[in-house]
Design a binder for these strands. Structure first.
Lengths: 201, 201
DNA sequence: GCACCGGTAGGACATTTGTCACGGGTGGGC
DNA sequence: GCCCACCCGTGACAAATGTCCTACCGGTGC
């Protein structure tokens, strides 16, 4: 039996996946969690062979959880399952030691198949997505530029950001300008859009 | 047997729900579609008793599809199933003649139960959500304000919007200013956030 | 040692954005 | 007929935003 840990915050998706996976006779869902920060502690006692992680979760992202698992439970394979096939997500998933990356499109049968394949040591990645990740390249944003852009993306003004990040207003303007330039856009809103689209936020 | 039409664009969710519903012995999924604009045509031949509609779909939203069904196939009950419990969504769903409104949290068992209840003529609505919808109130935005804010939300500048909507730049500024005022926010980004959060876009 | 990059900051400047006061037009409700 | 809401527009003004240049500091790589 393949022991699976399932991390997914959306209730209906979580229970549907758990039910479907349990229908497979070689797969057993040994634990389900709803928050990213519960993944590692629960995995340490449940000892899954494969962890199926959503990315967008409260507490911690699936990518952070993947990195935590690599350190805390190295034998456990990580399979990322996400709504958004953003190039940056795939890149970061691989850097966090994930063995596979699936998007929540495509049929459910893919899922069980992917679980068996990562357990056999294979890497499971959508080829089209891999190509997109390679062509898009790594994020051009520095850490600070990312922070500032993320803050600006939810409506903060320059002075809000400067207070929130303990920077001078001039510095914030410089970072924002740099982020806009590097993303090839015309203002902070477009910059935030393309950064999000590419998984750079 | 309860005949169900399932409209959901996300592949894994769609097939998972279809499978789970078919496991119930009094429910039969007679059609699945992936786009909002396929709902009515398919329903006219498949003749479902209940239509289970996602809101965010390509082609047309589930809310538009619900209105189409009310006109084209009045006997069919509509059950909206969505990720976001936005007050405005619930309000618009009811106005479009929906019999129920479920969020994709909570267990899958709720789903089959809700289907049976709407077929029995009941309205199925999360009480907490109903309270939020009532307290938030209807959208204060006029049609034009909504259009302009929506355009601004994805990075368009004033002159972009004026060209896209065939308005003068001054007019666009006035509408944006009005939208910012009515949402009680400080700039277009915050205005877009709260409008989206409340389901006004 | 030196070049380079990232973080931080200031100043000057043009552009964009947001506000306000005002006007006109249209259509619906009482 | 009158009022009101919505549509569309102008002009002026203040505030925020975006760009560019300069500068200093610490670390990293050669």
């Amino acid at each position: 039996m393949i022991r699976v840990l399932l991390a997914e915050d959306q209730g209906m998706m979580r229970s549907a996946l758990a039910l479907l996976l349990d229908l497979e006779d070689d797969i057993e869902v040994v634990a389900t969690v709803t928050r990213g920060d519960e993944v590692v502690p629960v995995a340490l006692t449940a000892r899954p062979d494969v962890a199926l992680l959503d990315i967008e979760m409260p507490g911690a992202s699936g990518l952070e959880a993947a990195a935590g698992l690599r350190d805390g439970l190295p034998g456990c394979r990580v399979l990322i399952l996400t709504t958004f096939g953003r190039p940056g997500y795939l890149r970061r998933a691989m850097e966090a030691g994930a063995a596979g990356f699936l998007v929540k499109d495509g049929p459910v049968e893919e899922l069980a198949a992917a679980i068996r394949r990562v357990l056999a040591g294979e890497k499971v990645i959508d080829p089209a997505l891999a190509a997109a990740a390679l062509s898009t390249g790594a994020s051009p944003l520095t850490d600070r530029e990312r922070d500032v852009l993320a803050a600006a993306a939810d409506g903060a003004t320059i002075s809000d950001i400067s207070r929130r990040l303990h920077l001078s207003e001039s510095t914030v303007r410089n970072y924002l300008s740099a982020a806009i330039g590097k993303t090839g856009t015309r203002n902070r809103i477009e910059a935030a859009h393309t950064a999000r689209h590419n998984g750079w936020l």
